[in-house]
Design a protein around this nucleic acid. Structure first.
Length: 510
DNA sequence: ACTGCCGGGCG
DNA sequence: CGCCCGGCAGT
């Protein structure tokens, strides 16, 4: 069952051990960048791997070297490579890729030692990690650590709350990173800087480097923030609407974000990434970074040179937004300058950039040019909310700007509760936040403060509205008889093909 | 629990 | 593109 997906991935990008450059015996890790085959010898055909070392240097190693390095000191503290479960030629992969190696070993272990007591504890433990993270396996094993959903929620909340770059940049969603293979672009940061100081199972993100688009922010945070939505139904039914004390909110350890819980695959609702100018009173939305940068550079910064003389300042003035294509795909470009300004933080009269700045920001003072389109002196903020669902997502983690979701002005039938939402309502997670909830101003990751309303705001802000989006897009369930019902499971071959494929029935359409 | 079917993987 | 399935969501 699992083999299908694990096999056949390239070794490229895998993390391997390599002999220490200094030769002192302590292996170092690196990421395979290229593989060459030295074929000259007919018998011995060996691969040469170009490995990007931790210090940034590129080195070439033969299989033997890598294999040798893989043994020894680090043997017990296997690091799992998250990206590629490369099992190409079993032999080399077993020494090149720790994960594959481990799997291999497990298989071997299973095969060899059927007698129960030969298997070491560590092996079991390792197996647990591998199993839970990369293989579809019934979850029976996790019983003792079966975290209840409250904890999950709490952890999610914590994840969401800490928008500090430290936490954000390498998302700790290990399991998902494994099963899905979207590439985390932690490009040069192979190790999570802070999250894990304990020894043993230590997840590392191997940078896929070339393939990944460096400018795309890693999706998991926003995507995973969907998760809390499934939770409230648990406690929500029985208890009253108010739950001032919420046990789940006593934060556990902030580091317990690594459950083995495989994150359920999220349905990607049709989100399109656009880039929005944050310059006050300008809501220009373009579909490419280059475009938005050029726009900002020329229009707002008043620079005329082409893109290569950019000092990157434009980055501060636009943000990435993910928008629901099926509802707003078009008409975006024609957004009036007024409505998008709702999305931006209320810009102070000063020409400061809309996004909050980290205190240590080294940005030069803005050129106080007069080029800025001086749109009407009065505030346009009081306009009605835009009729679209946005999920704002900044491009820069250090800006610590929480994503903002702005609900459409209660136009959807899906949620009638929108108007009755009160932010003081402790923990009723609802993405139906007050029309403008921008918590982007210096969201500090300080744990000490008692969150109150701010938390609920942040939560609601961080959560994106998959429900409403899907509620709109998802076809209402067909009511009439369907092939399955009519013919039954035993006559599956009589079903219409669509039914057989688990698609919308074509025979008994409604 | 059952069921329709979307999204996506695989060949 | 046909086939299949995981998993979400409505009942």
């Amino acid at each position: 069952m699992h083999t299908r997906r694990l096999v056949k991935r390239s070794i490229l990008g895998s993390r391997v051990y390599a002999p220490s450059p200094t030769g002192d015996g302590a292996p170092v890790t690196g990421v395979v960048q290229a593989v060459k085959q030295e074929n000259r010898d007919v018998e011995v055909r060996r691969n040469v791997y170009t490995v990007l070392m931790q210090d940034g240097s590129l080195k070439e190693f033969t299989e033997e070297e890598i294999a040798a390095a893989a043994k020894g000191p680090l043997k017990s503290s296997l690091k799992l490579s998250s990206s590629n479960g490369a099992v190409e030629g079993q032999k080399e992969s077993s020494c090149l890729n720790p994960e594959a190696a481990e799997e291999q070993r497990l298989v071997d272990g299973k095969r060899l030692s059927r007698d129960p007591d030969t298997r070491s504890v560590s092996l079991l433990e390792q197996k647990r990690k591998v199993v839970s993270s990369s293989i579809d396996v019934p979850h029976t094993r996790r019983s003792e650590e079966e975290v209840d959903m409250d904890k999950v929620t709490a952890a999610m909340v914590l994840t969401s709350l800490s928008t500090s770059p430290l936490v954000r940049s390498p998302p700790v969603k290990v399991s998902e990173g494994l099963s899905n293979s979207w590439k985390d672009n932690g490009s040069a940061v192979p190790f999570t800087p802070s999250s894990n100081s304990s020894s043993g199972g230590y997840w590392s993100w191997s940078a896929p480097s070339d393939q990944s688009n460096p400018s795309t922010p890693s999706p998991p945070l926003s995507a995973d923030s969907f998760k809390p939505f499934r939770v409230p139904s648990l406690g929500g039914v029985g208890s009253g609407p108010t739950g001032p004390e919420d046990p789940s909110l006593d934060d556990q350890d902030g580091t317990s974000l690594l459950f083995d819980e495989p994150i359920p695959r999220k349905r990607k609702n049709s989100m399109k990434v656009m880039f929005k100018c944050l310059w006050k009173n300008c809501g220009k939305v373009l579909s490419t970074t280059a475009g938005i940068q050029r726009h900002i550079r020329t229009i707002h910064l008043g620079r005329n040179c082409d893109s290569d003389c950019s000092d990157g300042e434009e980055d501060f003035y636009y943000t990435e937004i993910k928008l629901n294509t099926d509802s707003v795909a078009d008409g975006l470009s024609s957004l009036s300058p007024a409505s998008p300004s709702v999305l931006s933080p209320p810009p102070p009269p000063s020409p400061l950039p809309p996004l909050s700045q980290p205190p240590d920001s080294h940005r030069p003072p803005l050129p106080s040019n007069a080029k800025e389109p001086h749109v009407g002196g009065t505030t346009p903020l009081s306009r009605s909310a835009p009729s679209a669902l946005y999920l704002i997502h900044t491009d820069h983690a250090y800006q610590a700007t929480a994503p903002v979701s702005i609900p459409s002005s209660s136009s959807n039938s899906a949620d009638s509760a929108s108007t009755s939402f009160t932010p003081t309502n402790s923990f009723s997670i609802s993405w139906q936040s007050p029309p403008v909830t921008f918590t982007g101003n210096t969201v500090s990751p300080s744990k000490s403060q008692g969150f109150g309303e701010q938390r609920s705001q942040t939560i609601s802000v961080l959560s994106s509205p998959p429900r409403a989006a899907t509620a709109l897009s998802r076809k209402v369930r067909g009511e009439g008889k369907k092939c399955r019902k009519v013919y039954g499971m035993e006559n599956r071959d009589m079903w219409c093909t669509a039914c057989r494929w688990k698609k919308a029935c074509q025979r008994f359409t409604d």
